[in-house]
Design a protein around this nucleic acid. Structure first.
Length: 617
DNA sequence: ATAGGTCCTG
DNA sequence: CAGGACCTAT
């Protein structure tokens, strides 16, 4: 690709640039290929693009187009197009793109029909009892009845619902039905006392949408209002008495009924429980399978099977030792490492001839922070990244080498990471609902817009209450990729922090501060360049430049992070934007920087997966 | 109203 | 880097 095309497209992107700017100035900023590839003021920016560009998917080849009119803005819009790269199955996670909310209609329909089937079964049973005789009253089981508390209330509600549904044609038939409902209720009560069957309707939290209980609960709710408005409470004592006589006179029948009901109830309960745990597969997942979660949350439904399998694997391991974080190791190993080799292009490119750094994609520190970049291409990789395509066999080999290193590091860090999970606290956040289970390990599940359907839930077993210096360091490193991370990205990257409003705003403030420093530096160096550099074509940013040093000193003080080339290029673009704006006198406008901010925010690239999957603190 | 952003200050 | 004022978009 011709570097001049790059420069043209880059600068045509700037809204600032075309805003009343004379055409001759435009052309004056078009970079000369020779100049671009040459060393300027001791620094260089390598913009070499070779013919490999044509192998890129067209929507990624933002800068390889021969259309000089292509702009960054257009590129970014293309980048936002969710239709791109369907093979990855990832939707862009941009701050301005609303989270895709999946419709649950089909699921609800299934639940409703399931509920109706259950109800039909119960009604069938009840119908089978309609021939039984109505008998006299004793108060024998009243106390037992009331012991069952809320469950019984639900039962009576359901009974009332059934009674209401059974039709109001004949009054005597209705009474008969009522008596049978009462009978049913008593049987269930007994079963509960004897078999310890837990009524699924007795859950404390009634708002688990999509859960199998929902339809049942809704039915209860509906019938409950009917129940309250009806005088049927008056009949309760009468019904109880009638039923007691029935019980006493027909023990064998009771037993049969009990068996049938027991079967039906236990089947319904087990089905419900099964469906709950099927819909929350990551209950058993490990804290470090953030990648799997991230994938799942962004994948189309059809691509989810593998993740479910992974969850199953995690489950089999999790059951064993609750206190030790060994459950996810297999997940780490199983992850396809090479799927995201393109992510390492950024790092491997530091091996370019002008780069003094060793050919290490990630430093040890970054390895400690991150997971293997196992995610498939997310679909929001920035256009700048597409300029680089040296995903050679060499880099792949190195990728695998460091992948092995990462795994070992990860294992160690997992073992060493202190877990704050408490065996006494078994709180599970599912969507907006808090379940309590005596048998589940404590996991924190993030509730996000993308995972309304409860299928995509992250589990984290160690949650820090506050942001640490390591989090700050991680945030600074993230800044190399994303200057304007969305809160969703922040949540994904700082999943090991208990996200509160305060934490969120603190993280946002951090990035605001980072940007402030960044733009101050840019303006400072741009103003300095105005006095020293006559042509924007001479204005480049390389790793040896003072600007880069200043930025690196701020965001990567210990120099233990391999700054991605994308950042260097974004820095150069920013510097040039400032340079051009100031040279045009735009800085007389008090809000002149906003146009630049608008350009720069579109240059965010996706934060690599390793930021999203490993604890930083 | 709230969230997220900039600018200024310490 | 945090706090606060202020602005803007949803």
């Amino acid at each position: 690709m011709n570097p001049s095309v790059w420069s043209k497209s880059m600068y045509s992107s700037s809204s600032l640039f075309f805003d009343g700017y004379p055409a001759e100035h435009v052309s004056s900023f078009q970079l000369d290929p020779v100049l671009l590839n040459s060393e300027v003021s001791g620094v260089s920016v390598s913009l070499h693009k070779d013919s490999e560009d044509i192998t890129m998917p067209p929507e990624r080849a933002y800068y390889s187009s021969d259309d000089a009119g292509s702009s960054l803005i257009c590129s970014s819009q293309l980048e936002l197009n969710p239709s791109r790269d369907n093979t990855t199955g990832h939707l862009p996670t941009r701050k301005h793109s609303p989270p895709a909310s999946s419709s649950c209609g089909y699921h609800e329909w299934n639940l409703n029909s399931g509920h109706q089937a259950k109800r039909a079964r119960v009604e069938h049973i009840v119908k089978g009892m309609t021939s039984s005789p109505a008998v006299h009253c004793t108060e024998g089981m009243t106390s037992q009845h009331e012991e069952s508390g809320g469950m019984l209330e639900n039962e009576s509600i359901q009974d009332q619902e059934l009674a209401d549904r059974s039709g109001s044609g004949s009054r005597t038939a209705g009474k008969q039905l009522e008596s049978q409902h009462q009978h049913l209720r008593q049987l269930r009560t007994r079963l509960n006392h004897v078999g310890g069957v837990t009524d699924i309707a007795d859950s404390k939290y009634p708002t688990w949408s999509n859960s199998p209980e929902t339809s049942t609960r809704d039915a209860f709710k509906d019938s409950y209002s009917e129940f309250q408005s009806s005088p049927s409470r008056k009949y309760q004592g009468w019904k109880k008495v009638k039923l007691m006589n029935y019980f006493q006179s027909k023990p064998e029948r009771i037993k049969l009924m009990a068996d049938v009901l027991k079967y039906e109830l236990s089947r319904a309960v087990s089905r419900s429980v099964d469906s709950i745990f099927k819909s929350v597969p990551l209950l058993q997942a490990s804290p470090n399978d953030g990648n799997a979660e991230t994938d799942a949350s962004l994948q189309p439904p059809g691509a989810k099977d593998d993740k479910d399998k992974l969850s199953c694997c995690g489950n089999s391991e999790t059951r064993g030792v609750p206190g030790v974080q060994t459950e996810a190791l297999s997940l780490v190993v199983q992850k396809p490492r090479l799927e995201r080799a393109d992510q390492f292009v950024l790092q491997s490119r530091s091996r370019a001839p002008h780069s003094p750094e060793p050919p290490v994609p990630f430093s040890h520190d970054s390895a400690l922070r991150g997971d293997m970049p196992s995610d498939p291409y997310h679909g929001t990789e920035h256009a700048l990244r597409c300029l680089r395509h040296e995903c050679s066999e060499d880099s792949r080999a190195k990728f695998e080498t460091y992948g092995a290193h990462w795994n070992s590091v990860k294992v160690r860090s997992k073992v060493n990471s202190r877990s704050v999970r408490s065996p006494q606290t078994h709180a599970v956040l599912v969507g907006n609902m808090l379940l309590e289970s005596p048998s589940l390990p404590r996991v924190k599940m993030e509730s996000e817009g993308l995972r309304k359907n409860n299928l995509y839930i992250r589990t984290v077993s160690y949650v820090s209450e506050g942001l640490t210096t390591n989090h700050l360091k991680k945030a600074k490193h993230m800044f190399f990729y994303s200057r304007y991370p969305s809160s969703l990205v922040l949540k994904m990257c700082f999943y090991d922090v208990q996200f509160t409003r305060c934490i969120t705003s603190q993280l946002i403030k951090w990035f605001s501060n980072f940007r402030e420093f960044y733009y101050i530096q840019m303006e400072k160096f741009a103003r300095h360049a105005l006095t020293a550099v006559a042509d924007v074509r001479s204005l480049t940013v390389g790793r040896e430049s003072d600007l880069f040093r200043a930025l690196n000193m701020h965001y990567n003080k210990t120099n233990d992070f391999q700054v991605p080339d994308g950042f260097v290029e974004v820095a150069e673009i920013t510097l040039r934007e400032f340079y051009v704006a100031i040279s045009m006198g735009k800085d007389r406008d008090p809000s002149w920087k906003k146009a630049i901010y608008k350009v720069i925010c579109k240059l965010d690239s996706d934060v690599p997966a390793e930021f999203k999957s490993h604890p930083s603190g």
